[in-house]
């Protein structure tokens, strides 16, 4: 039986995904502007593999192609992974990342809406565990690179390996990498911050653009404020505390907020509705804890960034968080849970 309502509001899943991708554009644009055209190659490749894997799995599961492919969810996952990975990595790295994101984390869990873990972050985690070296070769800001790659160069590098150009000519460590290695070497903070990668502020500008896109998502009511705010607050407060305790080992909260995956994570990754907590209070707990985990992993973990692991860890807790934070229902005065059998 298909009953009322007979009229619908016109929301569609594909439009929502598309809007989120639209909100990523300022960040992508800034990235291309500051780090060169390599980002287009990784976006393109990830999208290609995402659609390919999605189509293949839909076929194998005997599901209709058109409605599921056009929901744009695979594309969004592809973009989020591409933006989390170093650009100009070998093509198979993207392929493996998308394989784990789409096939394992999403389709094998039952497809859109059924997955427990954020697909893009699963792809990222698999790659950083399996291929840590490639994952640290980030493209240097154009202002610092000895050699600015063209789009054709970028394709060359991705498909043919390093070829004629040495990676040293166009890659550099990220802000977080540098901080981590240098503090371990007991380098004084002033000289760490004097390094060119801190001066270029390329990453911070990209992060600011993600923030801008995130504000657009808030404004268009695709997300609520709970997750981004709690996530950023979690990072800032715990990074701030650590910084107060030992400024020689722990960077300032501002540096944490505007480096690595924090902005992207706060607005685009932790907010993935499928894998995030869904109640207002649950969102605060989920994202706040994820933010704290990010700061802790960055400070004490083996990897420079912690967004992926923090999000994945909190994904596991979501069913639990949700069931304990059910909002009060209209007309119910007493809290839920008092009417247990």
């Amino acid at each position: 039986m298909i009953g009322s309502p007979y009229t619908l509001g016109g929301n569609t899943t594909s439009a929502i995904m598309l809007k989120v991708m639209l909100a990523l554009l300022p960040g992508i644009g800034a990235h291309a502007w500051l780090f060169g055209p390599g980002i287009w190659v990784s976006l393109l490749l990830c999208s290609f593999f995402a659609i390919g894997f999605e189509a293949l799995l839909l076929m194998m599961r005997g599901l209709p192609m058109k409605p599921f492919l056009s929901d744009n969810s695979a594309l969004l996952t592809a973009w989020l992974l591409a933006l989390s990975l170093p650009t100009l990595a070998p093509w198979w790295l993207y392929a493996i990342g998308m394989l784990f994101a789409i096939v394992v984390a999403k389709q094998l869990y039952g497809g859109l809406g059924q997955n427990l873990f954020n697909p893009a972050m699963v792809g990222y985690a698999v790659l950083i565990i399996s291929f840590p070296v490639y994952m640290t070769q980030w493209v240097a800001p154009l202002s610092l690179a000895d050699h600015a790659l063209t789009l054709a160069d970028a394709f060359d590098v991705v498909f043919a390996g390093q070829g004629s150009i040495s990676p040293d000519a166009y890659t550099s460590a990220t802000v977080l990498d540098t901080w981590k290695t240098q503090t371990r070497l007991q380098t004084p903070v002033e000289s760490i911050l004097a390094q060119p990668v801190f001066a270029s502020s390329g990453q911070a500008i990209v992060a600011a653009m993600y923030l801008l896109g995130g504000l657009f998502l808030l404004w268009s009511r695709l997300i609520t404020w709970h997750i981004p705010l709690a996530f950023l607050a979690g990072v800032a407060v715990s990074a701030g505390l650590l910084h107060l305790l030992d400024p020689t080992q722990h960077a300032s909260p501002l540096l944490h907020l505007f480096s690595g995956g924090v902005m992207l994570g706060a607005f685009f990754i932790a907010t993935d509705p499928v894998t995030a907590a869904s109640t207002p209070r649950g969102k605060l707990i989920y994202a706040g804890l994820a933010g704290i985990l990010v700061a802790i992993i960055r400070a004490f973990g083996g990897y420079p960034d912690g967004v992926a692991f923090a999000v994945l860890l909190m994904n596991v807790c979501v069913p639990f968080i949700d069931s304990y934070t059910q909002p009060r229902v209209f007309g119910h005065k007493i809290k839920q849970g008092s009417d247990k059998p």
């Binding site: 899943t13 929901d71 969810s73 609520t224 869904s278 059910q326 229902v329 209209f330």
Partner: peptide
């Protein structure tokens, strides 16, 4: 009616529910 897709837990329904249900 357009075809039914899987729930993405976007929470739009909960926000629209006048009874404050999930």
């Amino acid at each position: 009616k357009p075809i039914e897709l899987p729930c993405i837990r976007c929470g739009a329904c909960a926000k629209a529910c006048p009874a404050d249900l999930q």
